[in-house]
Write a protein that binds this DNA or RNA. Structure first.
Lengths: 176, 176
DNA sequence: CTGTATTTTCAGTCGCGACTGAAATTAGGA
DNA sequence: TCCTAATTTCAGTCGCGACTGAAAATACAG
């Protein structure tokens, strides 16, 4: 596949961003390439275009699949897998946030619960420290409930909220 | 400083989470230690407690300061710096999001603008691809405007919105 | 200003994860 | 079923960033 300079720049930048967010650079680059590609790409072509090993692409695709970010498709008369990704930033964000919630956020909440239980029983952790951890956990629960609630809304309503920005605060009754 | 088992578990978990989000493990551990510490800690004590080199703490503190996550304080008769961090998850989240916005989000928007300009002029990038990048940029602008708008609200209003969850959608007039 | 406590810098080491290429495995056409 | 294309696995290599400890720089008390 022939990369235009604009595509190349985009892919490189996306790779850097991924690296800063704990995503393997190659994985982010493969994702970026699929994002700008006009058509589904076979692994071989991805490897050539990005100048990385075929096996590296294999791993990157697997990683992206684990985040539900790539779809496999086939073409008549071609036995190779072809890969695609969402072309909509909302779909991308949703998949990433959902994945991180399950892999990191929820486990952290569980860990906090365990830590707090331990703190309650070990007889050495002060109440002050335990309170602080409990408050943190409460806040995380609040954030998570908000997230789930908003995710249940249809996309149109989400967009409306987004566009409304902070003005929605006006419509709400003041509580505590 | 004597760590209770609960504290130790929390610090280790926090370190792992940091690592997954592109934050150096030691940096995250130092932050976690400060979070659970009852009082401001001098660098030496941090190093001993976490069993890392004193110079490593120095770098970690500098990194945390660049994210506006630690405050320096002094004590009478003690010439050492003592360090503290926010004990409120909201303050933490705000600092982190603000930092990532400035370091990654805004630069990515700029990069996208450049890429799009290039795509417009290079004569090889297809309209379809350019449109896709433009749509992405538009969405990023929308997200950023929402973020800035919500951040301008007082903390109380933010909490109200958070607790309201998706219900706020009801109060809004439907717009395309 | 001097001496000491404290922090920062930096060159060198080390470990981990990313990447490669070959070999093994799997899938599909004839 | 056999053969080839395609994919995945895996052992080995490599590079980068984290970490250390010593040395330099800085801050401070007297």
């Amino acid at each position: 596949m022939q990369l235009t300079p604009a595509m190349r720049d985009f892919i490189l930048h996306w790779g850097e961003m991924g690296a800063r967010w704990g995503v393997n650079r190659s994985v982010a680059q493969v994702h970026a390439l699929l994002f700008v590609s006009a058509k589904p790409l076979p692994a071989e072509e991805i490897a050539e275009t990005l100048s990385i090993a075929r096996s590296n692409v294999s791993g990157a695709i697997r990683e992206l699949q684990s985040w539900k970010l790539v779809k496999v498709s086939r073409e008549l008369g071609d036995r190779r897998d072809h890969f695609t990704t969402h072309h909509d930033l909302f779909d991308l964000a949703r998949a990433v946030v959902e994945g991180r919630r399950e892999r990191e956020f929820l486990p952290t909440m569980e860990a906090l619960e365990t830590v707090i239980d331990g703190a309650r029983e070990d007889g050495v952790t002060t109440d002050e420290v335990r309170d602080r951890l409990e408050t943190m956990l409460e806040t995380m629960r609040l954030l998570d409930a908000w997230y789930q609630d908003v995710m249940r809304l249809p996309r149109g309503a989400q967009l409306t909220l987004l566009r409304a920005g902070g003005t929605v605060a006006r419509y709400l009754p003041k509580t505590g």
